[in-house]
């Protein structure tokens, strides 16, 4: 068949299976996060959260999904229909694509690009379009303002995100995520690259516009921001896209700063899940604890504080790497 041998076909089938398995695992994890976040927020606000549907309320996810599937999928008559429909697909697409280069264990992972990290940055920079186009196509003042804020916020924080990662890249000598993990066998990057870790955490939070950087969807000012006009499964895609973003940033922190699957005794996958799960919970804790900054505060914090720290970090790391070589 097509001049391929049996071994090659088996290889292709295995890769396809692995890809689909990772895709499903990631999307299911993101869907479960809806429940995890609500339970954790409950814990930190001295209440229980959803605990009625199924054991510990875990079937709340299924209930929410069923509800959202059966909601009316309404497109406002004044909206730009094509763009309105495309917008939520973009955020799902870019975030899921970014998972392609994340190495989960020594063997599990879709692809090892030699520009893995750049690929993730590229995908996250394309993710801006989802929000900005949703805001524009809704033809709604709140949505447009939300889209505007997102554009400025995400473009700015992408800069610091990229710069903070340069230190990691310098230490590993490669953009390949797998090489970056393997370079941390002696010492996790969190120790030599602590400033970069802090910047990446903050910028990552802003990049997926999670609280405290959820200005694009600040309820008090913008009703629901860019997704004000969205309903049904289109809103659901934004919703799940946000959780996918949390999972992605948590995986990236794990891979880049906490040695990915590296760890004693337990198998690699368990270590990866534990580390990533910890950061998912941390993002929820951030949402529970912190207040939303004003828009100008967000911008000046980024450009006046994070940018200089990131640049100094890159310079020092570069100097040390050259001196050690």
């Amino acid at each position: 068949m097509f001049g391929l041998s049996f071994d090659q076909l088996l290889d292709i089938a295995l890769t396809a299976f692995e890809t689909i398995a990772i895709l499903l695992a990631v999307v299911i994890a993101a869907a479960l996060l809806i429940w995890v976040e609500r339970r954790l927020l409950g814990v930190w606000q001295d209440r229980y959260g959803p605990n009625r549907v199924g054991p510990f309320g875990i079937l709340q996810v299924a209930a929410d999904m069923i509800k959202i599937f059966f909601k009316e999928d309404w497109i406002p008559p004044f909206a730009d229909k094509t763009v309105f429909v495309i917008a939520p697909a973009i955020i799902m697409f870019t975030t899921i694509m970014a998972f392609a280069v994340v190495p989960f264990t020594e063997t599990i992972g879709v692809v090892d690009l030699n520009i893995g990290l750049l690929f993730i940055l590229a995908m996250s920079s394309l993710g801006v379009y989802s929000v900005i186009l949703a805001g524009w196509s809704s033809d709604n003042k709140y949505a447009l303002l939300g889209g505007m804020r997102t554009a400025a916020q995400m473009i700015s924080y992408e800069v610091f995100m990229g710069l903070s990662l340069l230190g990691v890249v310098l230490l590993a000598g490669s953009f390949d995520m797998r090489v970056i993990v393997e370079s941390q066998a002696g010492m996790w990057n969190i120790i030599p690259q602590f400033p970069a870790f802090v910047i990446f955490l903050i910028a990552g939070c802003a990049e997926i516009h999670r609280a405290p950087f959820d200005l694009p969807e600040a309820e008090q000012e913008l009703t629901a921001g860019y997704h004000t006009e969205y309903s049904g499964m289109k809103f659901g895609m934004f919703f799940v896209g946000e959780y996918l973003g949390i999972v992605l940033i948590s995986c990236l922190i794990t891979v880049l700063f906490f040695g990915g699957w590296l760890g004693p005794i337990l198998p690699g996958f368990v270590w990866f899940a534990l580390k990533a799960g910890f950061f998912v919970c941390f993002f929820v804790l951030l949402r529970a604890a912190t207040v939303r900054p004003r828009y100008d505060q967000l911008m000046s914090f980024g450009w006046k504080i994070l940018l200089p720290i990131a640049l100094v970090n890159v310079a020092i790391t570069g100097a040390v790497v050259v001196a050690m070589a």
Binding site: L118, L121, A122, S125, L126, V128, Y129, I132, L133, G135, W136, L144, G147, M148, A151, A152, M154, I155, E158, G162
Partner: peptide, 16 residues
């Protein structure tokens, strides 16, 4: 990253 992700976003921003 640079063209599609940053510069074009500014274009869209202005046109919006």
């Amino acid at each position: 990253i640079v063209y599609a992700g940053a510069i074009m976003v500014l274009f869209v921003f202005v046109v919006m």
